Measured scan of single mutants.
Amino acid sequence: CHSECLGNCSQPDDPTKCVACRNFYLDGRCVETCPPPYYHFQDWRCVNFSFCQDLHHKCKNSRRQGCHQYVIHNNKCIPECPSGYTMNSSNLLCTPCLGPCPKVCHLLEGEKTIDSVTSAQELRGCTVINGSLIINIRGGNNLAAELEANLGLIEEISGYLKIRRSYALVSLSFFRKLRLIRGETLEIGNYSFYALDNQNLRQLWDWSKHNLTITQGKLFFHYNPKLCLSEIHKMEEVSGTKGRQERNDIALKTNGDQASCENELLKFSYIRTSFDKILLRWEPYWPPDFRDLLGFMLFYKEAPYQNVTEFDGQDACGSNSWTVVDIDPPLRSNDPKSQNHPGWLMRGLKPWTQYAIFVKTLVTFSDERRTYGAKSDIIYVQTDATNPSVPLDPISVSNSSSQIILKWKPPSDPNGNITHYLVFWERQAEDSELFELDYCLKGLKLPSRTWSPPFESEDSQKHNQSEYEDSAGECCSCPKTDSQILKELEESSFRKTFEDYLHNVVFVPRKT
């Protein structure tokens, strides 16, 4: 048989008469490798580009789960590009990614509803959504962080984005990388972005840091009482949809009607710091009717980097990364020049730590249904340095008659930039024990000054392991946590139920 035959053949030295091919099969003959313009397919066939392209389009058009959109890589027609490569849609070739590779997620039936953290986790790592997304989240724990972890990498949506009755959302900033909504599939009414009845939605994105392009379709905003109209108009300008909307697409009466839409800028007039305090004062603000001013709200939190936005980490279910302080308005003076500047002394802060701070007014709604208010920009203030805590785990070892090696770990709280350490030492008198000992005694162990690591005695271990207080009263049991108490109650309830079950099964009433 021919060298490319495997198993047997019907005619000697003829690659077209093989029972099976050793390498690849091409047009009725066995070959060692697939010549151009053919590609290896499933490690035994040679196919042309049209064959591989037909497989790709067949799966793409069917949208069946589990099928493969075949691509070409290293002269092979394979189910998908290997790690580190992405497909070129024009020629199906796998090309190296520039940075992290995109991950295209194809949605069944063309859309997916995100109504819980669990459903959001199914899209973790996706960068391109081939379909439409509907966000409908009523509640949950730590929602802002969970949504950002699972949806934060999405850069492109081919269909539309719909935010509907998501009472738990305060902001859409968890879509931190969303840059493009194509609108290839539109919501009824030709809408590519749809926001309806979101009672706590206050911000779409921080438009000073976020760009969003909507290729096709219109915007729809109705019944978002805490979303200011200025935020919607800003989205029109940034996304390129200005002029597409009709009169009733953006409701003037049901958007922002319960919001404090600040239209003035508060400026800080005085800032002073110490290692654990920050004193702030800002310019006074009074609405047209000074009785509408209820006070100020001061927001602050630790910020290692200057990239904080107002609604980071917030949701309507209680999660809030900001510390909020309510401040009463100052006494009002008739003389504008003698107006008191409101302020606040922030206490209990960490030394040498940068804080993000902003302040906003708290006002009631005027009778004319106009909203007044003022808010400052987010500023960054760093507390002063102070003395560091003591170095940890000092170790001293003498390696000769004239040297001592000293080692330690950095302090747990540096409280500033540590530039150097101060080492103090003092000579001590020799131990009298060394002169009084009889060095001729056998088995004498000389006193040693070398360091030995501390260890816990058996008594201390027994005390720590004991669940009861000892007789001397030195140790006591740790208080039980809520989960331990709940577990004990469940076990007790189970024992009672099981005992009742045994009584009912074992003891049967005697027939009379």
Rank of each mutant, 00 (worst) to 15 (best):
K103H: 02
V104L: 07
V104W: 14
C105E: 01
H106D: 04
L107D: 03
E109W: 14
G110D: 09
E111G: 15
T113D: 02
I114K: 00
I114G: 00
S116R: 01
T118E: 12
T118V: 05
S119W: 02
A120G: 11
A120L: 10
A120S: 09
Q121F: 09
E122V: 11
L123N: 01
R124S: 12
G125D: 10
T127G: 05
T127E: 00
T127I: 06
T127P: 03
V128G: 11
G131D: 01
L133G: 00
I134S: 12
I135A: 03
I135R: 01
I135S: 00
N136Q: 01
N136M: 02
R138D: 03
G139K: 08
G140F: 06
N141H: 09
E146P: 09
L147H: 02
L147F: 13
E148T: 11
E148S: 07
A149D: 11
L151I: 06
L153N: 10
E156Y: 07
S158Q: 09
G159W: 02
Y160E: 03
K162Q: 15
R165H: 06
A168V: 04
L169F: 14
L172R: 00
L172W: 00
S173Y: 11
S173G: 05
S173L: 08
F174Y: 14
K177H: 04
R179C: 14
L180N: 07
L180S: 10
L180Y: 08
I181R: 00
R182Q: 02
G183S: 03
T185D: 12
L186F: 12
E187L: 11
E187N: 14
I188E: 05
G189I: 01
G189T: 07
N190V: 10
Y191C: 01
Y194I: 08
A195S: 09
A195P: 00
L196I: 12
N198A: 05
Q199V: 13
Q199F: 09
Q199Y: 04
Q199T: 07
N200P: 01
L201T: 03
R202I: 01
Q203K: 12
Q203T: 11
L204C: 09
D206V: 08
D206W: 02
W207I: 05
W207D: 08
W207C: 03
S208T: 09
S208H: 10
K209M: 13
K209A: 12
H210M: 05
H210V: 11
N211W: 12
N211L: 09
N211E: 12
I214K: 00
I214H: 03
T215S: 08
T215I: 15
T215Y: 09
Q216V: 08
Q216S: 11
G217W: 02
G217F: 01
L219N: 07
L219G: 05
L219E: 02
L219I: 14
L219H: 03
L219S: 07
F220W: 03
F221S: 06
F221K: 01
Y223P: 00
Y223N: 07
Y223T: 14
K226V: 14
L227A: 03
L227V: 11
L227D: 00
C228F: 08
S230T: 07
E231S: 14
E231L: 13
E231G: 12
I232F: 01
I232C: 07
I232P: 03
H233C: 14
H233L: 02
K234M: 01
K234R: 13
K234A: 03
M235L: 15
M235G: 03
E236T: 13
E236L: 06
E237Q: 13
E237G: 05
S239V: 13
T241Q: 13
T241E: 04
T241D: 10
T241P: 09
K242C: 15
G243P: 01
R244P: 12
Q245V: 06
E246K: 14
R247K: 09
R247S: 10
R247D: 04
D249G: 12
D249T: 14
D249H: 03
L252G: 13
K253W: 14
T254R: 07
T254V: 05
T254H: 15
N255K: 05
G256V: 07
G256L: 06
G256I: 04
Q258F: 04
Q258C: 02
Q258S: 14
S260D: 15
C261S: 05
N263Y: 02
E264P: 10
L265V: 12
L265R: 13
L266K: 00
L266M: 07
L266N: 01
K267F: 11
Y270S: 00
I271A: 02
F275R: 15
R281V: 00
E283P: 05
E283S: 09
E283F: 08
E283N: 13
P284M: 14
W286A: 02
D289W: 03
D289T: 03
D289E: 03
R291K: 07
R291V: 10
R291W: 09
D292F: 09
L293G: 07
L294T: 10
G295W: 15
G295D: 08
F296Y: 15
M297V: 03
L298N: 00
L298A: 01
K301F: 08
K301S: 10
A303V: 12
A303T: 14
P304A: 15
T309A: 07
F311V: 05
F311P: 10
F311S: 08
C317M: 09
S319C: 10
S319A: 07
N320T: 12
N320W: 13
W322C: 01
W322F: 11
V324C: 08
V325M: 05
D326P: 05
I327K: 02
D328F: 09
L331S: 11
R332M: 05
N334G: 11
N334R: 14
D335H: 10
D335P: 04
P336R: 07
Q339W: 06
Q339H: 10
N340V: 15
H341E: 08
P342K: 04
P342V: 14
P342D: 10
G343S: 07
W344N: 12
L345Q: 12
L345R: 04
M346T: 04
M346P: 00
R347H: 04
R347N: 07
G348K: 01
L349A: 08
L349I: 07
L349H: 00
L349V: 05
L349W: 00
P351I: 04
W352Y: 02
Q354S: 04
Y355E: 00
Y355Q: 00
A356S: 08
A356V: 02
F358S: 11
V359M: 09
V359H: 01
T361E: 05
T361H: 14
L362N: 05
V363G: 15
T364L: 01
D367Q: 12
D367H: 12
E368S: 09
T371Q: 13
T371E: 09
K375L: 14
S376M: 01
D377A: 08
I378P: 02
I378M: 03
I379V: 14
I379C: 13
Y380V: 10
V381S: 04
T383A: 01
T383V: 02
D384R: 04
D384H: 14
T386R: 07
N387D: 02
N387T: 12
N387M: 12
P388E: 01
P388T: 00
P388A: 02
S389H: 06
V390M: 12
D393S: 11
S396P: 15
S398T: 15
S398C: 15
S400R: 10
S401V: 13
S401H: 13
S401Y: 13
S401Q: 10
S401K: 09
Q403A: 02
I405H: 10
K407T: 15
W408H: 00
K409M: 07
K409D: 06
